Amino acid sequence: MIIARARARQGFEEQMITAQKTLVTLSREAPGCLSYELFVSVQDPGLVTFFERWESATAWRAHMQGDAIRAFRQTAGHCIGEFELDEMHQVA
């Protein structure tokens, strides 16, 4: 499971989320994608969290080097002020 959180730079919230919705649509079609979900904080509309499940670490790495991520970075990467990513494994 991948959990990624991004905070938009002030004034770029709508642009970032619009681009991320496109990223979700494209990522769900990627080989090895089991689920790819995007949530926006109720308290802080500039804060989003992705929950991703991939068949393997190899599939996730391919996604991170793929066209969908590359296109997002080119069109909206500048909208992100803060970003953190956690690669997790289920224990229970």
Rank of each mutant, 00 (worst) to 15 (best):
D44W: 01
A6L: 05
R9I: 14
G46N: 03
Q65F: 13
V48K: 03
S35Q: 13
Q90I: 08
V91Y: 06
C33P: 00
V40C: 03
Y36P: 01
F83D: 09
H63D: 09
Q90V: 09
V24W: 09
L26M: 12
Q10C: 11
I17F: 06
H89T: 04
G46A: 09
Q20K: 07
A71W: 09
A71T: 11
F72M: 14
V40R: 03
A71I: 14
R7S: 13
A71V: 14
L26P: 01
T18Q: 07
P45F: 05
Q10P: 10
V42D: 10
G46C: 10
S56H: 02
H63W: 12
I2G: 02
G32Q: 07
H89P: 00
R5P: 02
K21L: 00
V91Q: 10
A57I: 09
A8L: 07
I3W: 06
D67C: 08
Q43W: 15
L34C: 06
W60S: 08
S56V: 08
R9M: 14
A57D: 10
I2N: 01
F39T: 10
T58I: 14
L38K: 01
I69P: 00
I17Y: 04
W60T: 05
L38E: 04
R70A: 15
F39Y: 05
R7T: 12
F39R: 07
I17N: 02
A59N: 05
L85S: 00
I69Q: 10
